[in-house]
Design a protein around this nucleic acid. Structure first.
Length: 259
DNA sequence: ATGCCGTATGTAATACGA
């Protein structure tokens, strides 16, 4: 089966490309981030018309996640259990579902903004809650993965220029320690192949020709438990989807599983 | 060519992104 994660940067703006991509890629399960819609606005009908159902955690213009599946959708968990609030709001940033033989979380980790901003402490607390929430499934025998926009580059090689990110979020030891703690539950980083160039970047800023210049970052990650990782037959970044008018600033990460 | 920021809100300007 084919499973993927994609920060679509508004599912409304991306709907034509999303529908076309689901069909052309043959994706069975897609974890979506930044739907930027209300639950009522989510395009269930359009997805159903091409054979997919969806579970959605979304509240409006910010954040929002979903799991879109054509191989079943069960045992949905809405929101991150015991997750921190930001400015007293429980933001829609996580959703779990079981799709056929695989259980997944679709996550949109808080950005952090600046290292001395309250949003950064919120980001680290959010990772702690995620780690606690997934520990059971991570240690289990069923294929399980946490897929999404982690807003952390795991290593220096995962950003196009480390000098640009000195003192910035996404590359700090604290964020990378949070990733290590998450892996400590039994998860491994399923690193995709780049279809071009040397690094499997998944995000390129819209500005300053970042994509044509390949000034990217690998921040969309697939963390799978042992049964998941052992079933992986291929993984790649579909950079073709970052091209052209109407693209998201993130490309899908695609994983093929022998399950 | 992959090409110089995009989205939602709301209808101008702002918040947000990383």
């Amino acid at each position: 089966m084919r499973i993927a994660t994609w920060n679509v940067n508004s599912i409304t703006a991306r709907l034509p490309r999303l529908l076309a991509w689901l069909e052309s890629s043959g994706t069975d399960v897609l974890c979506v981030q930044e739907t930027k819609c209300t639950a009522e606005q989510f395009p269930h009908e359009e997805l159903r018309a091409i054979g997919y159902e969806a579970a959605v955690e979304a509240t409006g213009r910010w954040n929002g996640v979903a799991v879109v599946s054509r191989v079943g959708l069960a045992d949905v968990v809405h929101g991150l259990p015991d997750g921190p609030r930001y400015e007293e709001v429980a933001e829609p940033r996580a959703l779990a579902a079981t799709c056929g033989p695989v259980r997944v979380w679709s996550v949109y980790v808080p950005n952090g903004r600046e290292v001395d901003h309250p949003h950064f402490a919120y980001k680290l607390r959010w990772f702690e809650a995620l780690t606690a929430a997934v520990a059971g499934d991570a240690a289990g025998q069923r294929p399980f993965a946490v897929l999404g926009d982690y807003n952390v580059a795991p290593a220096d090689a995962d950003v196009w220029d480390t000098a640009v990110f000195e003192g910035a979020t996404h590359v700090t030891p604290a964020e990378r320690a949070a990733l290590a703690a998450l892996r400590g539950t039994g998860l491994t980083d399923v690193v995709p192949r780049p279809l071009k160039y040397d690094h499997p970047y998944t995000y390129w800023d819209y500005r300053q020709l970042a994509f044509p210049k390949n000034r990217g970052m690998r921040i969309d990650l697939v963390y799978g438990n042992a049964p998941f990782a052992e079933a992986v037959s291929d993984a790649y970044v579909d950079r073709e989807e970052r091209k052209g008018k109407g693209a998201s600033d993130h490309a899908p990460v695609v994983v093929d599983l022998e399950v």
